[in-house]
Design a protein around this nucleic acid. Sequence first.
DNA 1: TTGAAAGCGCTACCAT
DNA 2: ATGGTAGCGCTTTCAA
Lengths: 324, 324
Amino acid sequence: MVSIKDVASQAGVSVATVSRVLNSKGYVSEDTRKKVEQAIAELNYKPNEVARSLFKKQSKTIGLIVPDITNPYFPELARAVEDTAAKLGYTVILCNSDGKTEKEQHYLDVLMQKYVDGIIVSSNTISERQIKSLQIPFVSIDREISKDIPTIVVENKKGAKLATQYLQNKGCMRIAHISGPLNVVNANERCEGYKEVVRNEQWFNESYIGNGHFEMDSAIEATLELLQLHPEIDGIFAANDTMAIGAIKAVHKIGKRTPDDIAIVGFDGISLSKATTPELTTIEQPIYEMGEKAASMLIEFIEEKPVEKTFYRLDVGLVERESS
Amino acid sequence: MVSIKDVASQAGVSVATVSRVLNSKGYVSEDTRKKVEQAIAELNYKPNEVARSLFKKQSKTIGLIVPDITNPYFPELARAVEDTAAKLGYTVILCNSDGKTEKEQHYLDVLMQKYVDGIIVSSNTISERQIKSLQIPFVSIDREISKDIPTIVVENKKGAKLATQYLQNKGCMRIAHISGPLNVVNANERCEGYKEVVRNEQWFNESYIGNGHFEMDSAIEATLELLQLHPEIDGIFAANDTMAIGAIKAVHKIGKRTPDDIAIVGFDGISLSKATTPELTTIEQPIYEMGEKAASMLIEFIEEKPVEKTFYRLDVGLVERESS
DNA sequence: TTGAAAGCGCTACCAT
DNA sequence: ATGGTAGCGCTTTCAA
């Protein structure tokens, strides 16, 4: 690799001068700048970012910790983060935590050692203390950890109400809910939204809520149980799209039809939801926008630019398709 | 951040000694090692990887360039790469190229500046010359660039033949193909495999091949055209799962049924293929294994360990589900 | 067995 | 306007 020294001698100047033209900082005469630029071009010189990082104590790199990039919600998020970071001159290190505290802590350590300039995390187990002790810019996405931590989330409760009311308006008389793990804030909020709508219905009781883990198999199982217990169910609101797809499968399995016998609504608006038959009616999150916002906010922190707001609760909307 | 100096003075030794215990290299008496380790623990010292990188000229980081992480094929691949890299002490920088040469070149430059130790790329546009000029370990995945470049691909042709023959065995009399972009090697191989099976059928001619771009909308369009031109088609082999899903939708749209009227087989085995109704019969690639292999091979190169083989063509298999 | 010091490539301060 | 040089945190000779 050609270094700044090579450029300096090639151009017949000192490394200090080369550094100046590199960073457009300090006085450089037009003439010498030309010479240096030519030398750079001739040698195809690219400054060594590692050396820069060591000196500047920042690396133009951010870390992104997600539970599992294989979960269809996260690729779009990751893409948005990467796009935005790249646009602003940053690079992103991807980490999969599987939602496990040890893995998260491990990655946090590794990222700190690599001098990343900031971190975006989607986690329910990480604590405010843990984050604060890092002492670097941080954004929590899709999960609310503390009002004190910059956060991007969506209107979970509102979305859940929207979904449930929509099902009511469609004429559903018995609406069940398949929840996510209730210790996860967003799953809990979605469940609350559902309950708020049906709580006062005379038919309602807690047995209309089945528990899933945000993935398909658990939802199939939950749906099957629900339908056995309450054959009169004619509408299901699932706490995410993957589970809604599981619900569709379960309904199909016992020979009923979607939406004719049972209408189904999901949550998230992952691209998968357009690929199923019937296409899924869902509460759409602005996933790309969330990633974009998280990255740009993080980088504003990093570059110490003024940040107007540090807590975003983005809006969601109903996308009506064929499953309802 | 606490540095090696802090540890040294805390332990009452020189930085050289601390470095020795850090790397278990050179002589250190049991006694002083204990002292140093204690100091490290007390101060919760973590060596600065950037400084290490600068000296060692390697960063324990690898780059992963994919066209688009949002394409359902790549998350699983990325996960495998990340898992394997993490296990071996490496970190991965994710880059989305959209298959564009400029973006690829840009990321290649950036990754070089960051001193990544190696790069894994999925690309059709990148050239052997480009790669060779990088002078760092490199693995091409899912795309064959040159016999000279370490590569992980699958038996595309064999898989395509498998799919087409299977459709024949299922009793299909007129089997169409929806190809990917034919300038992409794997799309071309899959098309060749299909042709090899049907070429000698009396009904066959090139108009049974529709062109898609490996994504859903193009496949819907292609299928609609194909079906209009040849209403007698009773089997479709799509060059990837996303397009197969598009085909299912198109078939559904014109009121025919899958698999009763038209059987459909895809290619890839992405997790999406299990989520559709009907579930997709497909030629399954060992995606995770490919990512795993790519990462471990790359790291073997990086660490200059002996590598037995540098070109893997992994096997594929038919997974029979409901769409056929 | 340990320490002093050079040097990885770069930036920024201080001279000139 | 330009150059010399210290120093970012670490590893690795070389000497002691």
